[in-house]
């Protein structure tokens, strides 16, 4: 009798099926390449990012102008935001009377202060860096159902704060 050699069923299994095996990944790579092409096609580096919510639905337009990197002003049904920071609340798209200046009914003081702060910051940066210039451009993302009454107040206040070039963000109509 020889020692060190398996016999019977165990020897048969060892002989027939080796312990290592290869997965067939060609079809998986095919699938990933198709997915990669699709994702590359819809890849975006746009400076305007819209967080979808019930309070902010942009209007649809045929305008093809791409947005540039500018100050972000969001006017949703829930409130007004400057660079993602909430400045004041809106109650279902309505502005509280107390928020509007008594002597000038178009002027929103809180918004002015927030925009003025941003303008000062931009001017300070521009004074240090000659390549940058304060151009007073602002991208306004406003809900499509908001009345012009509010937008007019927002535009008027931003104009007084030095942001006179307002660009309205819209969804591209296909």
């Amino acid at each position: 009798m020889r020692f060190g050699r398996k016999r019977g069923m165990s020897a048969y299994i060892e002989r027939r099926s080796p312990s290592t095996f290869k997965i067939q990944i060609t079809s998986m790579v095919d699938m990933f390449v198709i997915l990669l092409v699709f994702l590359l096609k819809s890849y975006s580096t746009s400076p305007v990012n819209v967080t979808p919510s019930d309070d902010l639905t942009l209007p649809a337009s045929s305008s093809l102008k791409d947005p540039a990197e500018n100050l972000k002003l969001v006017v949703s049904k829930a409130g007004i935001f400057v660079e993602d920071e909430k400045v004041l609340d809106l109650k279902d798209g309505r502005l509280d009377v107390a928020e509007v200046d008594a002597s000038d009914t178009q002027f929103i003081r809180k918004l002015y202060e927030a925009l003025d702060q941003q303008a000062k910051k931009s001017r300070d940066i521009a004074s240090q860096n000659s390549e940058l210039e304060f151009d007073g451009k602002v991208i306004m993302q406003a809900d499509r159902s908001l009345p012009y009454e509010i937008l007019r107040k927002v535009m008027y206040t931003s104009m007084l704060a030095g942001y006179s070039d307002v660009k309205i963000a819209v969804m591209l109509k296909e």
Binding site: F32, L35, L36, L39, L40, S42, Y43, S44, T45, S46, V48, V50, L58, S61, S63, L64, K65, D66, P67, I139, M155, Y156, S158, M159, S164, D165, V166, K167, I168, A169, V170, M171, L172
Partner: peptide, 21 residues
């Protein structure tokens, strides 16, 4: 690459309308 692209994928293109005051 796929997860990175999935994070930056957009299905709605945002453009702007110029309305200087």
């Amino acid at each position: 690459i796929v997860p990175m692209l999935l994070l930056s994928v957009v299905f709605v293109r945002i453009t702007v309308v110029d309305t200087p005051v």
